[in-house]
Amino acid sequence: MGATSISVRQVQQFDIPDGKTDITKANVTIGSISKTSKTLNIENKTFVKFKGSYTKTIDDEILVYNLEADEYQQYEKYQKAFEFDIFYSSSDQLLFLSTTTPIAKKFLKELEKIDGLEIRYTSLKFDLKTISNMMPQTKGVSFNSNDAGVSSKSFSGDEVDVNDEAIEALDNDEATKIIGTLDILGKSRTIMLTQSGTILSFTSLTDFSDQKEYPMLEFAIATLIKIGMLH
């Protein structure tokens, strides 16, 4: 099993009407959000489930077989549709999107442009220094850099948190990503947290995924509780 991730946002307002709401751009439908009748209760927190979709243009050369011409034709870009679950807790003002950060960013950006929808959100602000101190092992730290010709730096290894540059980035609240181990849901797991709003598990969730309908959501909530951002 590869890494599994979920995107999370702090939400001040998220008023979505019943039924399906299309996201359009230049009169072309590029996505949608649908409010479902399903609610979940996790850690005494209630979540409303939505279904989201977003079509992204991929800049990459591909060959596509044209039946009419009976030949392969080359294209420099193509469109790919992504479908994902969305979970919203009004009491904790949190929104979880079961998709990658780039898709979540584009989806939410287009969603908030729709007239009549009241949506206000921000990225979670992780205290990465405190989280690093909680980790038995910090394996990676990334941060922006002002060095000539370098926009960002990443350090990885078993003792990243003793590196001078990594320590300085954490102390000055300049770190953008951290990777390390934490005991979550009864098991030591290697996780990643980013200031862009991603919670990612490098460790398999199969030890409890068979019993949980949405294991990554369960994992994300447990992680936020573990690091003190949820109670």
Results as ranks from 00 to 15, higher is better:
Asp147Asn: 06
Asp127Val: 06
Lys56Ser: 13
Glu43Thr: 12
Lys187Arg: 15
Ser145Cys: 03
Asn172Glu: 13
Leu224Ser: 02
Ala3Ser: 13
Lys125Asn: 12
Gly19His: 07
Gly140Asp: 03
Lys125Ala: 05
Glu168Arg: 02
Asn172Pro: 01
Leu205Gln: 02
Gln10Ser: 14
Thr223Met: 01
Gly52Asp: 05
Asn144Thr: 01
Leu111Asn: 02
Lys226Ser: 12
Lys77Pro: 00
Asp147Tyr: 04
Phe96Trp: 08
Thr99Met: 09
Gly197Glu: 05
Ile103Cys: 01
Asp183Trp: 08
Glu61Pro: 07
Ala81His: 06
Leu97Gly: 06
Tyr54Asp: 09
Pro215Asp: 02
Met1Trp: 00
Glu218Tyr: 02
Lys226Pro: 00
Leu111Gly: 00
Ile131Phe: 00
Arg120Pro: 00
Ser142Thr: 06
Gln12Gly: 15
Ser90Leu: 08
Ser142Phe: 06
Ser123His: 11
Glu218Thr: 05
Ser188Tyr: 07
Tyr75Asp: 15
Gln12Ile: 12
Gly140Met: 09
Leu185Met: 01
Gly2Pro: 10
Phe143Gly: 05
Leu170Trp: 07
Tyr75Thr: 14
Thr130Val: 10
Lys113Asp: 12
Tyr72Gln: 10
Phe155Trp: 11
Pro17Val: 00
Ser151Arg: 11
Ala175Leu: 07
Ile58Met: 08
Ser201Phe: 04
Ala26Pro: 01
Phe219Cys: 05
Lys177Trp: 06
Lys25Glu: 15
Ile114Trp: 00
Ile167Glu: 06
Leu182Val: 09
Phe14Ile: 01
Phe143Thr: 11
His231Trp: 08
Ile179Leu: 07
Lys109Ser: 15
Asp85Ile: 00
Lys125Gln: 09
Glu159Ser: 12
Tyr88Pro: 00
Lys109Tyr: 14
Ser91Asp: 15
Pro215Gly: 09
Ile167Leu: 01
Gln73Asn: 15
Lys212Thr: 14
Thr181His: 14
Asp158Gln: 12
Ser201Met: 03
Val141Met: 02
Ser7Thr: 15
Ile62Ser: 06
Ile167Arg: 07
Ser91Arg: 12
Phe126Glu: 12
Glu71Gln: 14
Ile30Ser: 01
Ser188Met: 14
Asn27Lys: 13
Leu182Ala: 02
Gln195Asp: 06
Gln211Arg: 11
Gln93His: 11
Gln12Trp: 12
Ser188His: 12
Phe14Asp: 04
Ala148Met: 14
Met1Tyr: 12
Thr101Ser: 15
Asp60Trp: 05
Asp92Tyr: 11
Thr138Gln: 03
Pro136Glu: 10
Lys51Gly: 02
Lys212Gln: 15
His231Asp: 13
Ser132Thr: 06
Gly19Asn: 10
Thr55Leu: 00
Leu185Ala: 10
Ala169Phe: 10
Tyr65Asp: 03
Phe155Gln: 09
Phe219Ala: 04
Gln73Glu: 15
Ser152Pro: 11
Thr122Leu: 02
Thr176Glu: 10
Phe84Met: 03
Tyr88Gln: 09
Lys106Pro: 04
Thr223Pro: 06
Val162Gln: 08
Gly52Trp: 09
Ile227Asn: 03
Glu110Ile: 06
Asp59Gly: 03
Gln10Pro: 01
Glu218Lys: 01
Glu165Pro: 08
Ser152Asp: 14
Thr194Glu: 09
Val160Asp: 07
